[in-house]
Design a protein around this nucleic acid. Structure first.
Length: 542
RNA sequence: GGGCUGGUAGCUCAGUUCGGCAGAGCGUCUGGCUUUUAACCAGACGGUCGGGGGUUCAAGUCCCUCCCAGCCCGCCA
């Protein structure tokens, strides 16, 4: 450790600074780090912020020997208030309303998500379906979070003291919230009972009985967004477990019940929920609010993520194109910067990660700052730090995807110098696992790396001189055992002796084998292919 | 309309806490490797730090103002 302990010093890795801030409060163990979302739309990579930001802070604390629990609230008691336009099946497929039992949703607007049937028919409720998706995302990221269902916190009584407190102090609650929300008036009651007849969350409380622990209500229509959700008119009585706190109170109630020490949240909360939540925690619940951290949202391919418009990408889709450690690396970047998650530039992201990794292992030199960040953040991106790991450059991995022949991929990688001869089988297999992802990326984005080994003879019409050059190359390859450099040399030789521009012959070669004017270094490429195939292709025979 | 966050090289971003030489990687260009080809080496180019004003010996950093993007100030989270 090099004198970086002074409080005035800023930590290189943001998560360490946040961890410092948490520790200044001398928290009880286990330290609780929370995230949470309302599981109503397609879970997408925006939600991944909630998981990964907390994760890196948790790991920073664990590094220092503290016990940490990372919990994640599924705010599944929330009312379903409008029809989502897109949903995701448990397989991760994004579907429209036409592909599912949409009426399961449409007929149940106004009910808590956990009381809405699953339109896919696979889970116990729509809320459960959505929460399952979140859980899968976290599993795919390899982040151990404990998902807590809000519905269950109400049902098992955990929230009961919070509800009681808020109702006891409802005068004060109105005053506090009224500073932040204009709509709060004398009739405002900070609790929405659930109608025992129709299951809707209502807002018309007619009486509160703190001794009995109940409220009376009339199930009236409720404004939700632009539309009104019809009430059934039922008059009934609900316990403190049979209903829901408004979000502005529910959030601080979660802090109290779960004893939260730290919570990251998006900038949408920064101006509304956080200031009011902080004050509610202090004045109503009389607890210390968690250490906050606002993160800037990122865009996806240059536009805001939006479940409703379908502009989303799931964790699963991301991980079909890049490795988990690369995706995790993305979240090691400072949280407050606006940044774009640009799929078309995954090659750049992966290259950046490879550099980050190489800096960690002192295989290349980075700036002092880069080294300091890699030192702290890299171990939390990978399963285990392995200096012998081999990384095939991402774009070259995409190039290897031109063939589905595993053996050929390996040969090409080896002959191009990306796989050391001495590498153990497991290391080779790990390195080649990138090929499938890079291939998926190339196909998905249909970019310059998306090409296939031409199975049949492409439509090329070489001049006589070019045909002669190709033939002489074929002959040279056929006659003697040529290594890669020798083949490369032969291409130049064939061009020179037939008076052809070198570049022209290279282009012809790429056209012949790839149907494109460019490709990987041609000598090692041809050397890796089956010799008789290469020879007959060069002679335009197959 | 009021408030908050973000805006740094062609691209992706560090650097802003607490003022002290404008930075990295990639890309581009040039040169080298007997040889343009998803390889390598060396070097160069690249900037109104969103614009303008102010404070200061000194401003990407602090203050004021304006522009752009997103968000909050209704509901919901």
């Amino acid at each position: 450790m090099s004198g970086a302990e002074s409080p005035a010093d800023r930590r290189a890795f943001w998560a360490d600074s946040v961890a410092d801030e948490i520790l200044e409060r001398d928290p009880d163990e286990p330290i609780i780090i929370k995230g949470g979302v309302s599981p109503s739309g397609v879970p997408h990579i925006g939600h991944t912020n909630e998981i990964m930001r907390g994760y890196f802070v948790a790991e920073s604390l664990r590094d220092r020997g503290y016990a940490v629990r990372q919990v994640f609230t599924a705010d599944d008691k929330d009312r379903l208030r409008k029809m989502p336009r897109t949903l995701a099946s448990l397989d991760g497929d994004i579907v429209g309303l036409g592909d599912i039992n949409a009426s399961a949703l449409g007929e149940n607007l106004g009910k808590p998500l956990t009381d809405v049937p699953d339109p896919f028919g696979c889970c116990s409720s729509f809320g459960a379906h959505q929460t399952t998706l979140l859980e899968r995302s976290a599993n795919e990221l390899g982040v151990p979070i404990e998902i807590v269902s809000n519905t269950e916190l109400y049902a098992d009584g955990a929230f009961e003291p919070a509800v009681r407190t808020v109702l006891e102090k409802r005068e004060q609650a109105r005053t506090v919230l009224g500073e932040y929300q204009e709509k709060v008036d004398d009739s405002y009651v900070p609790f929405s009972p659930q109608c025992s007849n129709c299951g809707h969350l209502t807002e018309s409380v007619t009486a509160i009985d703190l001794d009995a622990g109940t409220v009376d209500y009339v199930c009236e229509s409720v404004e939700a967004g632009n539309q009104a959700i019809e009430g059934c008119g039922h008059e009934g009585t609900a316990t403190f477990r049979e209903g829901k706190l408004p979000w502005r109170f529910e959030w601080p109630a979660q802090w109290m019940v779960l004893d939260v020490d730290f919570e990251p949240f998006g900038k949408d909360h920064a101006e509304g929920s956080w200031p009011s939540g902080k004050e509610i925690a202090d004045a109503i619940f009389e607890i210390e609010p968690p250490v906050p951290m606002v993160y800037e949202w990122f865009t996806y391919n240059g536009e805001a993520l939006s479940s409703s418009s379908g502009h989303v990408i799931t964790v699963e889709t991301v991980l079909s194109m890049i490795e988990r450690e690369v995706f995790r690396y993305f979240f090691t970047k400072p949280p407050k910067r606006a940044r774009d998650f640009d799929v078309s530039r995954f090659d750049q992201l992966v290259d950046e990660f490879d550099r980050f990794e190489a800096i960690y292992f002192d295989q290349i030199d980075g700036t002092d700052r880069e080294s300091a960040i890699a030192e702290r953040a890299y171990p939390h991106c990978v399963e285990s730090a392995d200096a012998d790991r081999i990384r095939i450059p991402y774009t070259f991995a995409a190039v290897l995807g031109m063939t589905d022949d595993q053996q050929l991929r390996k040969t090409m990688a080896r002959r191009s110098g990306h796989l050391p001869e001495s590498a153990p089988d497991q290391a080779i297999e790990d390195a080649l696992s990138r090929v499938e992802k890079a291939r998926t990326w190339a196909v998905e984005t249909d970019n310059e790396y998306n090409y296939r080994l031409a199975e049949t003879l492409p439509d090329v019409t070489p001049t006589d001189a070019e045909a002669t050059a190709l033939d002489s190359l074929a002959t040279a390859i056929e006659r003697t055992e040529l290594d890669d450099d020798a083949i490369q040399e032969q291409i130049y030789e064939a061009a020179r002796s037939n008076d052809i521009e070198v570049g022209q012959l290279f282009e012809l070669g790429y056209q012949l084998f790839l149907g494109q004017p460019q490709g990987p270094r041609l000598g090692p490429f041809l050397g890796a292919l089956d010799e008789s195939f290469v020879v007959s292709r060069l002679r335009l025979e197959a």
